[in-house]
């Protein structure tokens, strides 16, 4: 029963090799899907290319459905997996700052590594910018150390907040995603082939 490393079924000594292999698959898929191009990524904000929405939503739903399925047949113990802790204020502020970074830089961290790997100089500059940004955050940390740990809600699930079962939530999310794929498909066509 998974998670294999956490449960001691796979020795943690394999961790770094697993990380490398998982990363290779991750990078290969991102690059093959076009995530090494900032112009393709930014298309989601202007309606000319919704590849980000399609890949991102499909991936999240595939994994969420997979986890529910594996849990229901006893393949994985969901109480043993990592749940990102919620810090409400810092989470929202961080997301807003990342939103600025995304629209200005055209990349996010993972995709900038893919762009850099195939020779995009702008992606290399983006990663250097991240390095500087994290350094600045760390140097100025005392200014907002209280804020940083504020709004702690623990390892809470979205379904705890909404009070609905996980299966129902994932079903609703899938319906929203399919609706979004349909609508954005129409938008994409109109933006790219405007009729005079």
């Amino acid at each position: 029963m998974g998670p294999l490393v956490t449960q001691g079924i796979i020795d943690p000594a394999w961790n770094n090799l697993i990380a490398l292999l998982v990363g290779m698959a991750f990078g290969f898929i991102l690059e093959s899907s076009g995530f090494s191009s900032s112009r393709k990524l930014a298309g989601v904000f202007y309606g000319y290319d919704f590849v980000v929405l399609k890949v991102f939503f499909t991936a999240a739903i595939t994994a969420a459905l997979g986890l529910l399925l594996m849990s229901s047949i006893g393949m994985i113990d969901l109480s043993k997996i990592f749940i990102n802790p919620t810090f409400l204020g810092p989470g929202i502020v961080g997301g807003i700052i990342m939103g600025f970074g995304f629209i200005m830089g055209g990349y996010c961290p993972g995709t900038s590594f893919c762009g850099a790997a195939i020779g995009k100089i702008d992606a290399i500059i983006f990663t250097l910018g991240m390095f500087v940004g994290i350094l600045i955050f760390s140097e100025l940390f005392p200014l907002y150390s209280d804020f940083f740990t504020s709004g702690a809600m623990g390892n809470i699930l979205v379904t705890d907040v909404l009070g609905i079962p996980a299966g129902l939530f994932v079903l609703l999310l899938t319906i929203v995603a399919v609706g979004a794929f349909y609508v954005t498909g129409i938008i994409e066509k109109r933006v790219n082939n405007p009729k005079s």
């Binding site: 807003i96 600025f100 970074g101 995304f102 629209i103 990349y107 940004g133």
Partner: peptide, 9 residues
Amino acid sequence: GGLLFGIGT
């Protein structure tokens, strides 16, 4: 953009 993204992360 990278700088801001870094801070935001």
